[in-house]
């Protein structure tokens, strides 16, 4: 499938999706609550068949907390980047996609550990790298560690 028809298909599935400029991948910003439904149709649709989630990460853009999904299809060879974002910094929550792509289970735990983004329906949402009683989320831009992190 070529890039234009992927764009059309995604926009048909989620009308609110905004295309973002990116030379490498087709990038869409989509509302967080639509992510799970979109993911289902992306994976199980025959001519889309995005079966390979190779990267899932969080980004703190100060304004938003963003979760970035890098998807690819091993059958057709096309790829797609989806971004779900929220402005809620106190209690951010997304729907999990680890029932669709199993690799998401560990990636989401990492995002929860580092950004404090909760994933609803995740089977085992605990901190993965840091201790259970660790305070704060280190990859957020407002994380303060007066001892170790030096502001120049």
């Amino acid at each position: 499938m070529d890039n234009e028809s992927i764009k059309e298909r995604v926009q048909a599935l989620v009308p609110e999706a905004q295309l973002e400029e990116n030379k490498q991948f087709i990038t869409f910003v989509i509302p967080a609550e639509k992510m799970h439904d979109l993911a289902l149709s992306l994976k199980y649709n025959e001519d889309l068949a995005f079966d390979y989630l190779f990267c899932l990460t969080g980004v703190d853009t100060v304004k938003h907390l963003v979760v970035v999904y890098h998807l690819a299809s091993t059958k057709h060879g096309h790829s797609l980047v989806l971004k779900a974002q929220t402005t809620d910094r106190e209690n951010p929550a997304f729907d999990t996609i680890c029932d669709i792509w199993k690799s998401g289970e560990f990636y989401e735990r990492e995002v929860f550990d580092m950004f404090g983004i909760r994933f609803n329906n995740h089977p085992d949402l605990r901190r993965i790298f840091l201790d259970e009683n660790w305070k704060g989320f280190p990859f957020r831009k407002d994380y303060v560690d007066e001892v170790n992190i030096v502001e120049l």
């Binding site: 790298f129 280190p138 560690d145 170790n148 992190i149 030096v150």
Partner: peptide
């Protein structure tokens, strides 16, 4: 090694070393 002696290259700007 440097890390065991003094923290090594992970001396600054980390939070867990």
């Amino acid at each position: 090694g440097a890390c065991a002696v003094s923290g090594g290259p992970f001396f600054y700007n980390t939070y867990h070393v």
